[in-house]
Design a protein around this nucleic acid. Structure first.
Lengths: 200, 200
DNA sequence: TGATTAACGGTACATCTTGTATCGGATTTT
DNA sequence: AAAATCCGATACAAGATGTACCGTTAATCA
């Protein structure tokens, strides 16, 4: 059921024009550059139009994340191979792809804005999900699996987000192996004073 | 060697007045509220005066962090005890103290501001330092010690900063024990396909 | 074909913020 | 008493924000 008017077509690509400019602004000048005024001067699209589409800079950021392509994990089913591949993929994305810029912007925007906080939660979940699914065949469930994901991923995020250095690939690969070879070291082990079981 | 004029004394407490209001604003409304205008309306201190002290909102944030008390780690020398105490202290600080607000604000401000990036680096280093010193008697050095610190701390920061949930104490305590009891599981182990040495 | 409807551009306006400059008063040290 | 310093107040230019209104254009439907 279509209604009359001027729907989005090849002649009305203003949304795409503005969003591509917005992505460029976000990655070069930060989320503070996503104002209607800034987008207007950057694209030539009328300020009124920008306001109609996205009343606030946060709405622009949300639209950017909405539109952003999500890489489809191509898992082989072999746990170790898939996890190492995911580590490499995440390190790459954290370095040069928009992911790093998105993360900074979302963290900043979500700190005191509940709607953006929801967006952040979903975005981070999308980052963690491939690791969860890759870990599924390993027999880890529930909290143990969450801990494994966190152990692998969180040091990478700490590097990228707080220490501003390239994510430490090698360490993450070692963590993957530790999780798979000796899960008792980190997960489900008794508190302390008890030695882990001998390896076969 | 003092010079004439009106030095900072008990009669000129405007700096303290503004900074305490700024801390309140930061924790309730975020770093965006640290503008001269906002501090003026919040405290009654003249806008000119605010500008004279801190020309930019980032300068206010830097002053807040500068003034913030740094908890002195009271280490016993017993590695396990000290690390568990540090984990508890960090979890507490991440939850209700200004640390969480500071972290969010610094991450946001540092994303596209090199001066704030330096400040962030120092702030994060201050967060990690107690763990490094606590680990010193354990014989871990260099990269292995850095990895250990990261393994313990980064999941907590991920919880607080990206997942917006209370830091997982229990998991961090287990990680501490794993680092101390079976360091070969995570650090210094060969890549993969090689089983860690049997435990005595 | 002709009316309807949606999207866009342009303008205008009131309000707020930013950054800077300047002046005078108050207080303390020299 | 004089000099130095801090503070408050005001003014000003420039820009941003948010909203409202109107005219134009183009696609759709009767």
């Amino acid at each position: 059921m279509t209604r009359p008017g001027r729907p989005a077509g090849p002649a009305s690509d203003t949304e795409a024009v503005v969003l591509t400019a917005a992505l460029d602004l976000l990655l070069t000048e930060g989320a503070a550059a996503l104002s209607a005024q800034r987008l207007h001067t950057a694209t030539g699209v009328s300020r009124s139009t920008v306001y109609r589409h996205w009343p606030t800079p946060h709405a622009v950021l949300a639209a950017l994340i909405e539109v952003a392509p999500r890489p489809a994990p191509s898992h082989t089913g072999e746990v170790r191979t898939d996890l190492h591949a995911e580590v490499d993929a995440l390190c790459d994305r954290l370095r040069d792809k928009p992911v790093g810029g998105f993360l900074h912007a979302i963290v900043a925007a979500a700190a005191w804005d509940s709607a953006m906080a929801d967006l952040r939660r979903r975005y981070v979940e999308d980052l963690l999900a491939p690791f969860r699914t890759a870990l599924a065949p390993a027999g880890l469930t529930g909290a143990a699996r969450e801990d494994a994901v966190s152990a692998i991923v969180s040091p990478l995020l700490l590097d990228a987000l707080l220490l501003d250095r390239p994510a430490a690939r090698e360490r993450a690969h070692r963590t993957v192996d530790a999780v798979l070879d000796t899960p008792h070291c980190l997960f489900g082990a008794p508190r302390w004073g008890v030695r882990p079981p001998e390896l076969a």
